[in-house]
């Protein structure tokens, strides 16, 4: 039984890891099929991970409502959002002979699900990200004081890029457009490249440790 609980997952990780590593170096149509099928399998398993996540969210808010904890009314609103979207996306579309989850009918008209997406999700998502502009600006005001050479560089680069990205900035100081391009395409590219190389080396090392069973944190703790 210990083998099934502790060793079998490690064997599965090893076999799957080695097969999909070698797949890259086998230039054969069957190898490509293996890659395509493997990716589809991961997507299918991911759907069950979604079930885990959604049930966990349902559970947390159900407990909140049951105990009538502070703010439990908002949990009801959350449930309302889920139920209405599901009902419209699956049931109403199905009854109306439309494809479930489709945002437009064949003749290009907006479906009820498309309405929810356009008039609730898009504005909510857009505004949530848009208000970050204010918080970023206020954080910058507090922390962007040029106390050192490094901070001065950070401030200068930020100001130049901000000016170079809008017509007004380029109108006031035409050179900012070219400097912005140089900063983004040369300086920023070199730093991103170095960070990418570092991250990739670390990820490859971690993947090798996982395949050989040296890293087992993903299996979790708990009972043997």
């Amino acid at each position: 039984m210990t083998f099934l609980r502790r060793q079998l997952p490690l064997v599965i990780t090893f076999v799957a890891g080695v097969i999909f590593t070698l797949q890259y170096y086998v230039p054969h149509p069957k190898s490509e099929i293996l890659l395509t099928e493997g990716s589809l399998w991961i997507q299918i398993i991911g759907l069950f991970a979604l079930v885990l996540g959604v049930t966990s969210l349902f559970h947390i808010h159900a407990v909140k409502i049951k105990r009538q904890e502070p703010g439990w009314g908002y949990s009801l609103i959350l449930y309302f959002g889920i139920v209405v979207t599901l009902a419209v996306g699956l049931f109403v579309q199905w009854v109306g002979g439309q494809h479930p989850g489709g945002k437009e009918t064949i003749d290009g008209a907006m479906t009820a699900f498309g309405w929810i997406y356009t008039y609730t999700m898009v504005p909510l998502q857009g505004t949530m990200f848009a208000i970050l502009a204010f918080f970023i600006a206020s954080a910058a005001y507090r922390s962007f004081r040029a106390r050192s050479k490094e901070a001065a560089l950070l401030l200068t680069a930020a100001v130049i890029v901000m000016m170079g990205r809008v017509p007004l900035g380029e109108y006031l100081l035409p050179v900012t457009g070219d400097i912005t391009l140089w900063i983004l395409n040369v300086l920023n590219a070199s730093v991103r490249r170095a960070i990418l190389i570092g991250i990739s080396l670390g990820a490859v090392a971690l993947s090798i440790k996982i395949i050989f069973g040296l890293e087992r944190a993903y299996l979790g703790g708990g009972k043997e």
Partner: peptide
């Protein structure tokens, strides 16, 4: 754990050659 092992194994296997390349 079997499901997690499979996903992590495939993910690691896919990652190594592609990251290096």
């Amino acid at each position: 754990r079997i499901a997690f092992a499979f996903v992590v194994g495939v993910g690691s296997g896919l990652a190594i050659p592609r990251l290096i390349s």
